[in-house]
């Protein structure tokens, strides 16, 4: 598979349950196909309600006569090569699921935060502390993404917050389709704040829109000031940078000003909050940012819902 990190597909599990390879037509009767639909392969549809329907067809939708006339209409000569102008975005499928998620989140007035960082930045510790401190102030739910184990979801559930664990298997990032599938089983996304903790990785999550409201990068001061220049993509797509573990600064030679300067080179408008998830410094600024986002999402919610 992928030579760089070994990422692969088809091994995604949500709360330990493998995603089904096929579903019957009976589940999703309300969709049609273009003529000449490719036979015999598994494929998916996103329903109007955001659910994913996956199924396969035993045979072609077209009779031989209609196929022949389709070929004639397209001027196809057997054996002759022809050019098809496609101009399709490679992330079109992900963008489609992300749009479904975004519509769902907007309709329910949910504020959805995609938390991204390298492994070990303290994302889960920060999240668990945040959920305890904001108990009673916001309604929250969590989607946890990791290649293996449900340790993080268990840590979140211990705070009394509903959590779903997505295991990506060999996948190196969460994608929008996994979120579509996970929110279907998470009743707590009816308004409030949904935190999505992405797979610990500063590279791949940058390219995948999950349909979130805001993208947040967590970087700890034990990691090195030059990360924004080494991994510019993830900082370029972020709305907020959380600099974690600042209580350790007296023991390090870390230059906070340099880190912020590098990050703003990549994203001039980036908001920065310095904090410590264990020491408690700066947490109120982070909580204020969350509450402002949640209030704005509620306000934008369509009337009558």
């Amino acid at each position: 598979m992928c030579s760089i990190c070994g990422c692969g597909q088809g091994e995604t599990r949500i709360d330990g349950v493998a995603l089904p390879a096929a579903q019957g037509h009976g589940v999703a009767p309300d969709h049609g196909h273009d003529p000449g639909h490719d036979p015999g392969h598994d494929h998916e549809h996103v329903g109007a309600d955001g659910r994913i329907y996956r199924h396969s067809h035993a045979d072609d939708h077209l009779g031989a006569d209609r196929q022949e006339s389709l070929r004639h209409r397209q001027g196809r000569e057997d054996g002759a090569a022809r050019l098809i102008r496609v101009e399709r975005d490679l992330l079109a499928k992900n963008a489609g699921f992300a749009a479904v998620n975004r519509r769902l989140f907007e309709a329910t007035g949910s504020f959805v935060v995609n938390l991204m960082s390298s492994p070990g930045s303290g994302k889960t510790t920060l999240l668990a502390r945040t959920l305890i401190d904001l108990k009673g102030r916001i309604a929250a739910a969590v989607i946890e993404g990791d290649q293996q184990t449900s340790f993080d979801a268990e840590r979140i559930r211990a705070t009394g917050t509903p959590a779903i664990q997505i295991n990506t298997g060999k996948g190196c990032h969460l994608d929008a389709q996994m979120i579509t599938q996970a929110v279907g089983t998470l009743a707590a996304t009816q308004g409030g704040v949904l935190f999505i903790e992405n797979v610990g990785n500063l590279v791949c999550p940058a390219g995948f829109d999950l349909g979130e409201t805001r993208r947040v990068v967590v970087l700890s001061v034990t990691e090195g000031e030059d990360k924004p220049l080494k991994y510019p993509e993830i900082f370029a797509t972020a709305d907020l940078l959380l600099i974690n573990k600042i209580d350790l600064l007296p023991h390090l030679t870390f230059d906070l000003g340099r880190l912020v300067g590098y990050a703003r080179r990549v994203k001039p408008s980036l908001t920065v909050i310095e904090l410590s998830a264990t020491g408690g410094q700066g947490l109120e600024a982070w909580y204020a940012w969350i509450e402002a986002g949640a209030a704005a999402a509620q306000q934008k919610r369509p009337a009558g819902r």
Binding site: C2, I4, G8, Q9, L90, H173, V203, C204, G207
Partner: peptide, 12 residues
């Protein structure tokens, strides 16, 4: 990296 997902996107 995520190139395998993107290659799968080409196939899609």
């Amino acid at each position: 990296m995520h190139e395998l997902s993107l290659a799968q996107g080409i196939i899609d």
